[in-house]
Computed example of a mutant assay.
Amino acid sequence: MRMDIRWGDMDMMGHVNNTVYFRYIESARIAWLEAAGGPPHPDGTGPVIINAHCTFLRQLTYPGQIEVKTYVGRPGRSSFEMTHEIRAIGADGQAGAVLNATGGAKIVWADIKAEKSVPLPDFVRSALA
């Protein structure tokens, strides 16, 4: 997925703030869930992040555009891992060969009100296959 780097994504140091990388990853994760057929629903069951990480390798600056590639791991009973690669788009319109950041999260499917994990729904298992 491609995204624009916004002016407000930068901090006083003139580069994209570290917290914004998590927003980029979140946008890619939600887009994947929507494509799989299951956007989050706060009243039922859905994805809950139990950990998230990001490694910052090269800074990003405005103006620009990025590409976020998303990868999913094998499903467990109620969870799966997602990882992401973030690359700047060059003047040629192609994602750079050098990574700007890598990150990911462990997603657990949960009954939101009960605050307990539940088995992954079939549509998620199918998307992970």
Rank of each mutant, 00 (worst) to 15 (best):
A114C: 13
S117N: 12
K69M: 09
F123K: 07
T55Y: 07
H53N: 06
W109S: 03
G104C: 06
V68A: 00
V98Y: 01
V98M: 09
R77W: 15
T83I: 11
R125H: 05
Y71E: 01
D92S: 03
E85C: 05
S79Y: 15
P75K: 14
V68P: 00
A52L: 09
I112H: 11
V72S: 10
Q94S: 05
V108F: 09
G104H: 11
E85F: 04
P63C: 04
F123W: 03
K69I: 12
T83M: 05
G64W: 13
T70P: 00
G76K: 07
Q59I: 13
I86P: 02
L57M: 09
I107F: 07
N100F: 04
G73E: 11
A91F: 01
G64A: 02
K113D: 15
D111N: 10
F80A: 05
Q94W: 08
L60R: 01
V118G: 00
D111Q: 08
W109V: 10
T70A: 00
E67P: 03
Q59V: 12
D92L: 08
G90R: 13
K116P: 01
N100C: 07
G104E: 04
V108E: 15
N100M: 03
C54T: 06
L99N: 02
V72Y: 09
A114S: 14
T70W: 10
K116A: 14
A91S: 08
R58V: 05
A97T: 12
S126Q: 06
N100Q: 06
A105H: 06
K116N: 13
A105Q: 09
I112W: 15
Q65G: 07
G64V: 10
G73W: 13
Q94K: 11
I107Y: 07
F56H: 10
K113R: 15
L57A: 01
A97P: 00
E67D: 06
E115C: 07
I107C: 10
A101L: 02
A91L: 07
T102W: 01
V124E: 08
H84V: 07
V124G: 03
R58E: 08
H53D: 06
F123N: 07
Q65I: 04
P121V: 10
R77Q: 12
E115W: 06
P63F: 09
D122W: 04
I89W: 13
I89H: 11
T83E: 09
L99W: 14
R74W: 14
T55K: 01
H53V: 09
S79E: 08
Y62G: 06
T70Y: 10
T61E: 05
T102C: 01
V98D: 04
P121Y: 05
E67A: 03
G73F: 12
V98W: 04
G73D: 13
A105M: 04
G96K: 08
G104L: 14
G73A: 03
V108W: 07
D92K: 10
D111L: 03
I86G: 00
A88R: 12
T55S: 03
I112A: 04
S126R: 11
V118P: 06
V72T: 14
A97R: 02
G103A: 01
R74E: 14
V124T: 09
T55E: 12
L57Y: 13
I86D: 00
L57S: 00
F80D: 08
I89G: 00
M82V: 15
G90I: 12
I107K: 02
E85T: 06
I107V: 13
V68N: 04
G93P: 05
T102K: 03
I112P: 02
A88I: 14
G90L: 07
